[in-house]
Design a protein around this nucleic acid. Structure first.
Lengths: 104, 104
DNA sequence: CTTCTGTATGAGCATATAGTCATATAGTTA
DNA sequence: TAACTATATGACTATATGCTCATACAGAAG
């Protein structure tokens, strides 16, 4: 069905952006508050907040309150697997191209 | 590094779009020419061609000439795994929400 | 009550994206 | 050579995206 394709695409889109990937990589080590995340990734607080929101809305991140802080974490291990598979494809592609280079 | 994050994001973006996901699902069964793909997914030939190009440029699809036709196929099994993981996350999210509904 | 800290959001801007229609190109076939 | 088939591309439009600056808001601390 078409709605399912759109929903699946939305989930992937929520990961498929450099700043968001960076956040996901940071959150591999466990949950972090916004105040830790935005300095770690060197982005504005407002921009970071928006990206966190996008990922939370699409089921990539979980959000939890602790005292005055909001803690975000990766919700499903599948999100990390997707991030890893992107690396795997990239590696294959680069090694394919370097083979080409060697053949020149 | 920042360039690697961008490259990984580009790969994921090449998958994270409904029309392109539809094409990927179609190509699970093996390679197809453009002339088979665009009627199967009910998109214009020109639009289909552009999406195929995007995916080929980002290492998602392989392109091969056979006679007068161009055959496209999924280049790395990882691309299919990514598509599957998006479904897995979607399922979890939906079942999470339906649990909520039941609890009301 | 005021101030401070942590987080979210409105408004605006520049660029990217997906789609359409028309046309270009390359290789067949008549 | 002319017409046809398969694919790609230019030009355009509408919408989405990512970012910034400024501001809002909620809770804690003074």
């Amino acid at each position: 069905m078409d709605e399912i394709l759109t929903a699946r695409a939305e989930i992937l889109k929520a990961i498929a952006q450099p700043t968001r990937l960076k956040i996901i990589e940071l959150l591999r080590d466990g949950e972090r508050c916004v105040c830790e995340i935005f300095p770690a990734i060197a982005e504005e607080q407002s921009n970071t907040s928006r990206h966190l929101n996008i990922m939370q809305n699409n089921g990539i991140l979980a959000r939890r309150k602790e005292g005055t802080k909001i803690l975000y974490s990766v919700k499903h291990p599948e999100a990390l697997e997707i991030a890893d598979l992107a690396s795997a494809i990239l590696k294959k592609e680069i090694s394919g191209k370097s083979n080409l280079l060697q053949a020149v």
